[in-house]
C-alpha cells in the first residue's frame, strides 16, 4: 500500500521503455501523466473542499448546510459546477478584453504550478528541486499579478480597489511568510522539501519553531486571501472586489484557483511544520492528505468565526508585528543552532 503510486510510475516507465522509447521520452510521457493526474486531483478535490467548507460553515452557524443532492448533499458542488459551466459568459464592453480573459487562466495555471515541488508522500514528488521552498514562495507570489490583471482589466472601481488591496496585502505578507519558513530551513539545512520532511522523523518542526508556525499561519491566511484577511474579495464592502465583473466559468476558475492555492499552502504547511508524510501505521500519502485536510479545516474555522480586519490595520500588523517577530525568530534560531553545535549536539 505504501508504494502503490511509486510502483505504478515505475511500471509505466518500464512499459514505455519496453515499447522501444528512449528514457528521455518515457520520462516526458510520465511527466505529462503526472500533470494530468494533478489537474484531475485538484479539480475533484476542490469539489470535495467546497462541500466541506459549506458543511463546516453550516456546523459553525448552527444550520445544516447542503443536504438535498446525494448523501449529505455531496453532489451539490457538482450541480453548482454544471450550473456555472452552462451560465452565460458576460464580458462587459468597457473591459480590457485580453487581460480580462487571461487573468483567470493565469491564476489557475500558477496555482497548479505550485504542486510541482510538493511531496505527496515518500518519493512522491514530480520535481524534487533543491530550492523547493524558494520555488514555492516565488511562484505563489505570482498570483498577485493575476488579481491585479483581473481588477485592472475589469475597468470597474470596485474591482480596481480590490486588486490594489490585494497587491498591497500580498506583497506585505510575502515577507513574513518567507521569513517564518527560514527558521525551518535553517534547522533542516536544506530547501528541498523532501529533505525537510525527512528531517522531522524525530520531532516535528512545529515543536522546534512554534513562533514560526503561528506567523506562517497568519501570513498564509493573508496570502490566500481568506477570511479574516479576505480584502480583495470583501463582499460586504467591494461587492466582490476583483471578481465583480466575472461570470460563469471565468468566475469559477478564480474560485477553483483559490481552493487549489489553499490545498497547496496547507500541504506545504504540513510538510514544513507537521512532519510531512511521517506518521505511524498509515501509508505516507494518506498521512499528508490527513494533515493537509486538518490544516484546511482550521483555515475554514478561522474564516467563519472572525470579522474582516481593516486594510490599514492589516498592513500595520504585517510591518510592525509579524516582520519583527519573524526576524527575531530567525535570530533566536541561529543563536540556538550555534549553541547546540558548540555543545556537540
Amino acid at each position: 500500500m505504501e508504494n502503490w503510486f511509486v510502483n505504478i510510475a515505475y511500471a509505466l516507465t518500464n512499459w514505455l521503455t519496453g515499447l522501444g522509447l528512449s528514457a528521455g521520452w518515457a520520462d516526458f510521457i510520465l511527466l505529462v501523466v503526472q500533470w494530468v493526474c494533478i489537474i484531475i486531483i485538484v479539480t475533484l478535490n476542490v469539489i470535495v473542499l467546497i462541500w466541506l467548507e459549506r458543511k463546516i460553515s453550516g456546523f459553525i452557524q448552527q444550520r445544516l448546510g447542503p443536504n438535498r443532492l446525494g448523501p449529505f448533499g455531496m453532489f451539490q458542488t457538482i450541480a453548482d459546477a454544471i450550473k456555472l459551466l452552462t451560465k452565460e459568459d458576460i464580458i462587459p464592453s468597457a473591459t480590457d478584453k485580453l487581460i480580462f480573459r487571461t487573468a483567470p487562466m493565469f491564476f489557475i495555471i500558477i496555482s497548479v504550478m505550485l504542486y510541482v515541488v510538493l511531496p505527496m508522500g515518500e518519493n512522491m514528488v514530480i520535481a524534487d528541486l533543491n530550492a523547493g521552498v524558494f520555488y514555492f514562495i516565488s511562484v505563489g507570489s505570482l498570483t498577485t499579478i493575476c488579481l491585479l490583471m483581473a481588477g485592472w482589466g475589469s475597468n470597474n472601481k470596485w474591482s480596481l480597489l480590490g486588486a490594489m488591496r490585494s497587491v498591497a496585502q500580498m506583497i506585505s505578507y510575502e515577507i513574513p511568510l518567507a521569513f517564518s519558513l527560514l527558521g525551518v530551513i535553517m534547522i533542516a539545512g536544506s530547501m528541498r522539501l523532501s529533505d525537510i520532511a525527512a528531517a522531522q522523523s524525530n520531532v516535528w518542526f512545529i515543536v522546534l519553531q512554534p513562533v514560526a508556525f503561528i506567523t506562517y499561519f497568519i501570513a498564509a491566511t493573508a496570502e490566500l486571501n481568506r477570511g479574516p484577511f479576505d480584502m480583495p474579495e470583501a463582499e460586504q464592502e467591494l461587492t466582490a472586489g476583483a471578481y465583480t465583473e466575472y461570470t460563469g466559468m471565468r468566475w469559477a476558475l478564480f474560485f477553483l484557483a483559490e481552493y487549489t492555492n489553499l490545498v497547496a499552502v496547507s500541504a506545504l504547511m504540513s510538510t514544513m511544520f507537521l512532519g510531512g508524510w511521517q506518521g505511524p501505521f498509515l501509508p505516507s500519502w494518506l498521512w499528508i492528505i490527513i494533515k493537509t485536510y486538518l490544516v484546511m479545516i482550521v483555515f475554514m474555522w478561522l474564516k467563519w468565526t472572525f470579522p474582516r480586519i481593516r486594510m490599514d490595520h492589516l498592513m500595520s500588523f504585517s510591518w510592525k508585528v509579524l516582520i519583527p517577530v519573524t526576524l527575531a525568530n530567525i535570530l533566536v534560531t541561529g543563536i540556538a543552532l550555534q549553541v547546540f553545535k558548540g555543545m556537540g549536539w
Binding site: S57, I60, Q61, Q62, R63, G227, P228, D230, A234, E235, Q236, W304, T305, F306, P307, R308
Partner: peptide, 16 residues
Amino acid sequence: LAIDLGATTGLIYCFR
C-alpha cells in the same frame, strides 16, 4: 453589523 464587518456567523446567531 457583524456581517457588514465580514463575520457571517454573527448574523446567523442573531437571527436564530
